[in-house]
């Protein structure tokens, strides 16, 4: 399957799961809001242009916003993590030339610890920015802090479960061929 088709399918699936499963389940607690859809942005190929990534982030966020009627909130958070993603990848990549040997970030391509760091930092940034925008109109600093930490923890758990359930096979590409 080509990378384009795969990513289009992923886009739809992540969005639908977020809107019709995660947003529908009765809340565990008002401070815990599970998110999974942004994993689409984290799974984008290494080689994608930075502007394309940001546009995709914008589109993904806007689509979710259209369902939750919170225009701009998720869009802003997604644009932010799409912008920061390449910096983090450059920092965290451990093996020499992993970007050219593998397609996209995963445990196999980056190694367990760097990949989990990458995911958790972007999760935290996404949640912090989202709840910061939310807290601007309501709620105090303490509320914002606890909500960010708790929701990020639950989202990370979801991400790990997703990684375990849908192990993405990564082909090792050689540049000799």
């Amino acid at each position: 399957m080509s990378s384009l088709v795969k990513n289009i399918i992923r886009f739809c699936l992540f969005l639908l799961v977020q809107v019709f499963v995660l947003n529908q389940i009765p809340p565990l607690h008002h401070l815990v809001v599970p998110y999974l859809y942004y994993l689409f942005l984290l799974w984008l190929p290494f080689k994608m242009g930075r502007r394309t990534q940001m546009i995709l982030g914008f589109v993904l966020g806007f689509c979710l916003d259209a369902f939750t009627k919170s225009y701009g909130m998720h869009t802003a958070a997604c644009v932010l993590i799409a912008y920061l993603r390449p910096f983090l990848i450059n920092l965290l990549i451990s093996q020499e030339g992993a970007e050219s040997n593998y397609n996209e970030p995963s445990i196999t391509s980056m190694g367990f610890t760097p990949y989990m760091t990458y995911v958790s930092i972007l999760t935290l940034i996404h949640h912090a920015f989202l709840f910061f925008l939310e807290a601007l109109e309501s709620g105090g600093f303490f509320y914002f802090l606890i909500k960010t930490v708790l929701s990020a923890a639950v989202s990370l758990l979801l991400v790990i479960i997703t990684e375990l359930l849908f192990s993405r096979r990564q082909r090792f590409k050689t540049n000799t061929a």
């Binding site: 802003a76 644009v79 932010l80």
Partner: peptide, 12 residues
């Protein structure tokens, strides 16, 4: 892009 999204947040 960030400007557009923030504009949407505060206008909606």
């Amino acid at each position: 892009l960030m400007g557009i999204s923030l504009f949407m947040v505060f206008s909606y």
